[in-house]
């Protein structure tokens, strides 16, 4: 008594649908991280350094090994403004 192949079609559809969305999301995350593996378990220091990377290269995950910072880097560090409440 074989199982008719029609009984397995839904499983195939489920597999393909989950597969497509999973691969798509993973590719999207890879793209958002500049073609690199994502950072994980980051702490405040890592966030500060990533913000500095953004100021240096223009991208949160950008990296550069230049010795001297580009012109204007020393004055583009923002002051955090206190939130207004009244």
């Amino acid at each position: 008594m074989g199982v008719p192949f029609e009984a397995l079609l839904p499983y195939g559809i489920v597999l393909v649908m989950f597969g497509v969305s999973g691969v798509g999301l993973s590719k999207l995350r890879h793209m958002q991280n500049g073609g690199k593996r994502p950072r994980y378990a980051i702490d405040q220091w890592d966030r500060v350094m990533m913000d500095r990377d953004r100021r240096l290269t223009g991208y949160l995950r950008g990296q550069t090994d230049r010795v001297a910072a580009p012109a204007g880097f020393e004055v583009n560090n923002p002051w955090r403004v206190e939130e207004r409440y009244f």
Partner: peptide
């Protein structure tokens, strides 16, 4: 340059402070 979250003050350091270029390497090379 200035909104409710940040203020970017582009005034350079005064001339009586000697200039030194900031480090340009980002986090992974450092």
């Amino acid at each position: 340059r200035f909104n409710q979250q940040v203020l970017i003050d582009t005034t350079p350091l005064p001339d009586d402070i000697p200039k030194v270029k900031e480090i340009g390497a980002s986090s992974a090379p450092l």
